[in-house]
Amino acid sequence: MSNAKDNVLPKWLQLGDGIATVALSRPSQANGIQVDKLTLREPTVREMRAATLQGGSNEEEQEMVLFCSLASIGRADLEGLLMRDYRRLQTAYFRLGADDGV
């Protein structure tokens, strides 16, 4: 049974049609500019397969490859995020991929 609280989005997360926008807890570098938000788009099957191939059996590496692709940022930018903001990206990714329709 689903709890109503489970359906409430955190204030730092906005979901749209195939995208999730995450407000960062502090500005960070992304492609050479300071940003206070990152946007993830929903992955394609091709991207999922590529992340699996590039990351091998290392799930953490697969996720890093995938998030760089979905957010269109470089690896150093992703690794430069605060852990709190990386967790926000993880949460956004899983919310983005949820099929809430019946």
Score class of each variant (00 low, 15 high):
Met1Gly: 15
Ser2Glu: 13
Ser2Trp: 00
Ser2Arg: 12
Ser2Leu: 12
Ala4Trp: 00
Ala4Glu: 14
Ala4Lys: 15
Asp6Trp: 02
Asn7Ser: 13
Val8Leu: 15
Val8Thr: 15
Leu9Lys: 14
Leu9Pro: 04
Leu9Ala: 14
Pro10Val: 06
Lys11Arg: 12
Lys11Leu: 07
Trp12His: 11
Trp12Glu: 14
Trp12Met: 12
Trp12Gln: 11
Trp12Ser: 13
Gln14Lys: 13
Gln14Cys: 01
Leu15Glu: 06
Leu15Lys: 04
Gly16Glu: 11
Gly18Trp: 12
Gly18Asn: 06
Ile19Asn: 12
Ile19Thr: 15
Ile19Pro: 01
Ala20Asn: 06
Ala20Arg: 13
Thr21Lys: 15
Val22Ala: 09
Val22Ser: 05
Ala23Tyr: 07
Leu24Asp: 04
Ser25Arg: 03
Arg26Cys: 01
Arg26Leu: 00
Arg26Phe: 00
Pro27Tyr: 03
Pro27Arg: 08
Gln29Gly: 04
Asn31Thr: 07
Gly32Leu: 06
Gly32Asn: 04
Ile33Leu: 04
Gln34Tyr: 02
Val35Asn: 04
Val35Trp: 03
Asp36Ile: 00
Lys37Asn: 03
Lys37Asp: 01
Thr39Pro: 02
Arg41Met: 03
Glu42Tyr: 09
Pro43Ile: 04
Val45Ala: 15
Val45Ser: 13
Arg46Leu: 15
Arg46Ile: 09
Arg46Cys: 02
Met48Gln: 13
Met48Tyr: 06
Met48Glu: 15
Arg49Met: 11
Arg49Asn: 07
Ala51Cys: 10
Ala51His: 10
Ala51Leu: 09
Thr52Met: 12
Leu53Met: 06
Leu53Thr: 06
Gly55Ser: 06
Gly56Thr: 05
Gly56Val: 01
Gly56Glu: 05
Asn58Ile: 00
Glu59Leu: 13
Glu60Ala: 11
Glu60Trp: 01
Glu60Thr: 10
Glu61Phe: 02
Gln62Arg: 15
Glu63Asp: 13
Glu63Trp: 06
Glu63Lys: 12
Met64Cys: 08
Val65Pro: 05
Leu66Gly: 13
Leu66Glu: 12
Leu66His: 12
Leu66Pro: 14
Cys68Phe: 08
Cys68Ser: 09
Ser69Cys: 07
Leu70Arg: 00
Leu70Pro: 03
Ser72Asp: 13
Ile73Ala: 01
Arg75Cys: 00
Arg75Lys: 04
Arg75Glu: 06
Ala76Gly: 00
Ala76Trp: 00
Ala76His: 02
Asp77Pro: 02
Leu78Trp: 02
Glu79His: 00
Gly80Asp: 03
Gly80Lys: 04
Gly80His: 07
Leu82Tyr: 07
Leu82His: 10
Leu82Gly: 04
Met83Phe: 10
Arg84His: 12
Arg84Asp: 14
Asp85Val: 05
Tyr86Gly: 10
Tyr86His: 11
Tyr86Ala: 14
Leu89Pro: 08
Leu89Arg: 08
Leu89His: 05
Leu89Ile: 02
Thr91Gly: 04
Thr91Arg: 10
Thr91Glu: 14
Ala92Trp: 08
Phe94Tyr: 13
Phe94Asn: 07
Phe94Glu: 08
Phe94Asp: 07
Arg95Pro: 05
Arg95Gly: 01
Leu96Phe: 08
Gly97Ile: 13
Asp99His: 09
Asp100Glu: 14
Asp100Gln: 10
Asp100His: 06
Val102Met: 05
